[in-house]
């Protein structure tokens, strides 16, 4: 089984306001086959953790490793940013598809159908003209079509209406397998309830709680404590 492992991660952002510690002493193992949810209050370090786990940021200390990769398989990790729609570069959705999932058009159509979108109907559209919710679905769908070994999504359901929320949940459920690792950074308890799996609650840059999603959702005091309850 494939496992993404983090060991004792430390990271601080350095900027005009000085050094801000974002992640401290974070260790975890994320096996494939079950969805993993990283949740916690705003500013708790969730997105930074996503950057570290995906290799987009290098930890000040500690390490991240991916084990169980079969020989010949590409060691690929896909990350979809919170504002993924800001990262479209091409003139059309077809151009984005060519850049991101070239040669995987058939798979892309399949994934988009699961997400509730007819890909052929939007291929000619400029991606920056899509509505925010649609753009997010497109960004997620394009990365899913690549079938990376690790897929990290930062708040993928924000701004989705209930219909697309349902289809996103279904598409992610279909995508999960023992040879794929899914990590979702989210505040969305409905998505967690739909998919189940493992919850990793981050607070102040540290792992504050981990366990079964159902156990977290059943514990009102935990939800209140970590600002997860609306």
């Amino acid at each position: 089984m494939m496992v993404l492992a983090a060991w004792n991660l430390e990271f601080a952002w350095r900027g005009r306001d000085g050094e801000i510690k974002a992640v401290s002493g974070f260790s975890a193992e994320f096996p494939g086959g079950v969805p993993h949810f990283i949740c916690g209050p705003s500013g708790s370090g969730k997105t930074t953790l996503g950057y570290l786990l995906s290799g987009l940021a290098v930890p000040d200390a500690g390490s991240v490793s991916l084990t169980g990769v079969l020989p010949g398989q590409r060691d690929n990790i896909a990350y979809v940013f919170q504002f993924a729609e800001d990262l479209f570069f091409e003139d059309t959705v077809a151009g984005e598809l060519k850049q991101i999932a070239s040669g995987r058009e058939e798979r892309a159509h399949e994934v988009f159908a699961q997400l509730g979108i007819h890909l052929s109907e939007i291929l000619a559209q400029p991606p920056h003209c899509l509505s925010a919710g649609y753009a997010r679905l497109v960004a997620v769908g394009l990365q899913m079509a690549r079938d990376p070994q690790v897929l990290i999504l930062d708040e993928p359901t924000i701004g989705l209406d209930w219909r697309f929320h349902q289809s996103m949940a279904a598409a992610l459920r279909n995508w999960i397998s023992p040879s794929r690792i899914l990590l979702v950074i989210t505040h969305d308890l409905d998505l967690m309830r739909e998919l189940g799996g493992q919850a990793w609650v981050v607070s102040g840059g540290q792992l504050a709680w981990s366990g079964d999603v159902a156990a977290l959702l059943a514990d009102v005091s935990l939800l209140e404590k970590f600002a997860l309850r609306f």
Binding site: P41, S42, E155, G159, F230
Partner: peptide, 12 residues
Amino acid sequence: DEPDSYLDAPSR
């Protein structure tokens, strides 16, 4: 324009 989309409970 959906100004609370990205906010957690206390921020909302």
